[in-house]
């Protein structure tokens, strides 16, 4: 039996908008028979914290491309094993996971200037030279 795991989660770069705008979450993962890994953590986040539009957060069993994951302040892409096997409690001094959305545009939540002003908005700003 794995003991409960305390996890410090942080969402940033706009990803917090999918979590009611709350950036920091201190959560405890319940004890279960197997050790907690990142893949399970992601499912847990989706079930317990995610407030809307899961398609903007997950893709398959990993995060959507465009979201950076830092585990104890290091890029998860450095992890040698498949990241799903990164065990949440193996890090000393607690487990801190930061999920940063790279593109501020990805969530379509904060109003564009046009959205504030206009009811029937069209994408004019799409044209960039």
């Amino acid at each position: 039996m794995a003991a409960p795991v305390a996890v410090h989660l942080e969402f940033g770069g706009g990803a917090e908008l999918l979590f009611d705008g709350v950036k920091e979450h201190h959560v405890t993962l319940p004890s279960q028979s197997e050790p907690w890994d990142m893949k399970q953590l992601l499912v847990w986040i989706q079930r317990n914290l995610l407030k809307e539009r899961p398609e903007l957060f997950v893709q398959g069993d990993t995060v959507r491309p465009g979201i950076l994951v830092l585990i104890n302040d290091a890029d998860w892409e450095l992890m040698v094993s498949p990241w799903s096997h990164v065990h949440c409690q193996m890090m000393w001094g607690g487990f801190r996971c930061v999920l940063l959305c790279m593109r501020e545009g990805s969530y379509g939540r904060m109003p564009d200037m046009c959205n504030i002003l206009s009811v029937d908005h069209q994408m004019i700003s799409d044209r960039v030279t």
Partner: peptide
């Protein structure tokens, strides 16, 4: 980080 210009469904 929250100013957003493009919605995910727009062409861009």
């Amino acid at each position: 980080s929250t100013e957003c210009i493009y919605s995910p469904n727009a062409y861009r």
